[in-house]
């Protein structure tokens, strides 16, 4: 009994230590964002201080943060919507009317995800350059939609597969066409799955930092590129840097917390549920 209580306390301590250690850089970033620039670089580091919003105000005033945030929103949401529009019909067809080729098609889709972006950077960059897509929202949006398409198809497929076929069968008896079947029966019934698929796609778009750094500069640059511009040596303003980072990370972090369970399925292509 004595030993098991000791064990419980040790587990409690270990669990919380690990959690706080992993979270500490994020916590410190948020704390620093509420400091003045002087307080932010004080040694020893200040744990207690009078919080101020001056860094946020400065970020807002100096750089048009909103421009980059808007780019991030438009590109992430747009890319996700396009990916969902393409993948819902495909996942429906493969889940409810599988043919001998379905399995091969799914695995092939998975394999396109394995093509490293850096391997095709050069041609995409040049194609974008010649077609005027460089540094445009629509260009990056297209890349993101295609980048996430295999994942959304797979995730939707695994969600749709779990739906009892009888329900859709009943709908078909009532004379619903394919679109009616998808729109009025399948989507409402699998809404949680569709939502978490969209959420995962949003998170992946929001945080993507290879294409955004390479095919955008100013006009279409999302927050990942905006934040990267703080890495220049003269940008040693810890409070401002933290404020901008906090604003860039906060929305997606909250999304991630709410959808952690379903993410596993999408991130492992349904191999771990």
């Amino acid at each position: 009994m004595q030993q098991s209580r000791l064990k419980r306390v040790l587990i409690l301590l270990a669990g919380w230590c690990v959690a706080l250690l992993l979270f500490f850089p994020i916590l410190w970033m948020v704390l620093t964002s509420f400091k003045t620039e002087i307080a932010a670089i004080s040694t020893p580091p200040l744990l207690f201080f009078r919080p101020t919003l001056s860094a946020y105000a400065a970020v807002q005033a100096q750089s048009n943060y909103l421009h980059f945030a808007l780019n991030s929103i438009v590109i992430s949401v747009g890319g996700t919507v396009v990916a969902l529009l393409l993948s819902i019909p495909a996942a429906y067809a493969m889940a409810f009317h599988p043919t001998r080729r379905t399995r091969g098609t799914l695995l092939w889709m998975l394999s396109t995800k394995m093509l490293p972006p850096v391997g095709v950077l050069v041609p995409i960059y040049l194609l974008f350059k010649t077609s005027g897509l460089l540094d445009t929202r629509i260009g990056l949006l297209g890349i993101y939609a295609l980048m996430n398409l295999p994942i959304t198809v797979w995730m939707l497929f695994t969600f749709f597969r779990e739906m009892p076929h009888d329900i859709l069968e009943a709908g078909r008896m009532d004379g619903a066409g394919t679109w009616g079947e998808v729109w009025h029966l399948l989507l409402p019934l699998t809404m949680p799955g569709v939502a978490s698929t969209g959420l995962l796609s949003l998170i992946l778009c929001w945080n993507e930092a290879f294409w955004s750094l390479n095919v955008t500069s100013v006009n279409a640059a999302p927050l990942t590129a905006f934040i990267a511009s703080f890495s220049s040596p003269e940008g040693l303003f810890f409070a401002k840097l933290s404020a901008a980072s906090t604003m860039a990370v906060a929305p997606i972090l909250v999304f991630g917390w709410f959808s952690q369970r379903q993410l596993v399925r999408g991130l492992t292509f349904g191999a771990v549920k």
Partner: peptide, 20 residues
């Protein structure tokens, strides 16, 4: 808290680690 770092965009985590 423990899984949070995964949702931080790479440019932010790089900056936070490099500076803070």
């Amino acid at each position: 808290l423990a899984i949070s770092p995964f949702f931080v965009m790479p440019t932010v985590s790089a900056l936070v680690w490099k500076n803070l």
